[in-house]
């Protein structure tokens, strides 16, 4: 990304920050934040943030979210790696679509890139679309997460021909969805843990082993 484009990004961002809309009405009762609900639901309430650290098989990762003052959106950043070999660095936005006292449903769109090393190496710009369904506003929060991950693979052939050098590009999209089921437990205000099972599908249609993980979740007021 060129310095000019960085300036453009900043220029686009700056007026938005200045024109902050009125706070989104919070449907939840006032009280201490529920970082486990926020993290597992994929989006925090206005004024809140959450960070989760994940460890398990095959995934390790970190994810952070912070509520933005527009349209109920959260900014999300995520770094996730399978066996420290297949790493996805993504950023984007999430939003709670449904938020009742019993159920939270959120959607999330992230973009970024992925790098896989080793014999099955690949790299390219990537995206991830996620639906999260969490139950609860209690101490124990079960949650289901469905993610659809895509990577754009661009292969370049540089060909010497009698007429001169030719560059050919072929593009393909690789899909690797992941489903997870978590149960989060609030330990104390601002701190929670969760444990879950993962059903990844690395290179469909091949078989993938299921996995498991634990999360440490912290969160609070900005």
């Amino acid at each position: 990304m060129s310095p000019l484009s960085l300036l453009l990004v900043f220029a686009v961002s700056a007026p938005a920050l200045a024109e902050r809309p009125p706070p989104n009405p919070d449907p939840r009762p006032m009280g201490p934040p529920d970082p486990h609900l926020d993290a597992l639901a994929g989006a925090s309430d206005l004024g809140d943030w959450a960070v989760s650290l994940e460890a398990g098989f095959p995934f390790f990762g970190a994810r952070g979210q912070v509520a933005l003052p527009w349209a109920g959106l959260n900014a999300v950043g995520s770094v996730n790696s399978a066996l420290f070999t297949d790493t996805w660095a993504l950023g984007g936005v999430s939003k709670r679509w449904v938020d009742t006292h019993r159920v939270v449903l959120s959607g999330e769109i992230l973009v970024g890139g992925t790098i896989r090393s080793g014999d099955l190496s690949r790299r390219g710009p990537a995206s991830q679309t996620t639906l999260r369904l969490a139950r609860g506003h209690g101490r124990v929060v079960p949650a289901l997460t469905l993610s659809s991950r895509h990577v754009l693979l661009t292969d370049v052939q540089e060909i010497q021909t009698a007429e001169g050098d030719v560059v050919q590009r072929s593009r393909s999209i690789a899909w690797s969805p992941v489903a997870s089921f978590d149960v989060g437990v609030g330990v104390c205000p601002g701190f929670a843990v969760s444990a879950g099972l993962d059903v990844p599908w690395f290179d469909p249609p091949g078989f993938s082993l299921p996995g498991a993980h634990i999360n440490l979740i912290v969160g609070g007021w900005k």
Partner: peptide, 16 residues
């Protein structure tokens, strides 16, 4: 966020 992700975007998977 965009700054940190920018080096990853536009990667070529392979060049032969």
């Amino acid at each position: 966020l965009l700054l940190s992700l920018s080096p990853l975007v536009g990667c070529v998977n392979s060049r032969t």
